[in-house]
Design a protein around this nucleic acid. Sequence first.
DNA 1: CCTTGCCTTGACGTCGGCGTCAAGGAATAC
DNA 2: GTATTCCTTGACGCCGACGTCAAGGCAAGG
Lengths: 136, 136
Amino acid sequence: MRIGELAERAGTTTRTLRYYESRGLLPARRAENGYRSYDEGDLRLLQQIRTLQDFGFDLEETRPFVDCLRAGHPAGDSCPASLAVYRRKLDELDALIGQLRSVRAEVGVQLARAELEASAGLPGGPAPRCELGGQP
Amino acid sequence: MRIGELAERAGTTTRTLRYYESRGLLPARRAENGYRSYDEGDLRLLQQIRTLQDFGFDLEETRPFVDCLRAGHPAGDSCPASLAVYRRKLDELDALIGQLRSVRAEVGVQLARAELEASAGLPGGPAPRCELGGQP
DNA sequence: CCTTGCCTTGACGTCGGCGTCAAGGAATAC
DNA sequence: GTATTCCTTGACGCCGACGTCAAGGCAAGG
């Protein structure tokens, strides 16, 4: 099949496929007229790449999976290098999630504090005014 | 004070300050010789920006906080526009954390499965070999 | 023959937040 | 004078994963 059909079947664009080829990730055979020519195996490779991309893997991180499939293994993650990428990604995700949760907590605290101060500073505001009134 | 001192006191670079000025975020007065001139108030504005940046806020998202401070309010988040940014950021963080947790779970599952299949497919591997042996 | 629609390569644009280099002016130290 | 260190503006580089446009080739339908 040609590049347009592969792109459509994989839900991506021809530009993306040419980009992958330029990165050496998904090289294409060529027909006599110079057109790129792909088969069903290429579709599987491409699907593997897109799945990992959807998970947020960098393009380079998908390479071991593609190599693994191309080497004849039943799945992209049937090779140790792929498993290593999985593990590294899990660590990255854990670290990132931890950071984001920390930030989320801090922002939440700041919002609550700022809202409190706003209602306290508002004359006649919704909060009960205690002995701390701004203008006596 | 001049740009170098402000940068150092805020733990950033002169390039960054010129960038903020180019974005209209932190304009500077000028001395007679054309040098940028900052005061302690500018340091506060800058600290506000850096704090939010460290939290992962976009530069544009810090603008309401800076405007708020510059308008004479006691804190950058004393204004409704700043609170709105806080709330929007919380929503973004929640959504992002949710996605990442979902991805983390899925990757974890894939890793576990791939490890299982690897140990099952390995002849003499660590797992007990059942009736599914590859080469009889 | 001509149009249409696919394909080719090449090259520049995008986004954010700066880094880095270049060429030259200004203030201070010696 | 000159050496140093600060400052100025301007402009290009970077990163990742493509988008988009340009100029032109190839095949098929009418």
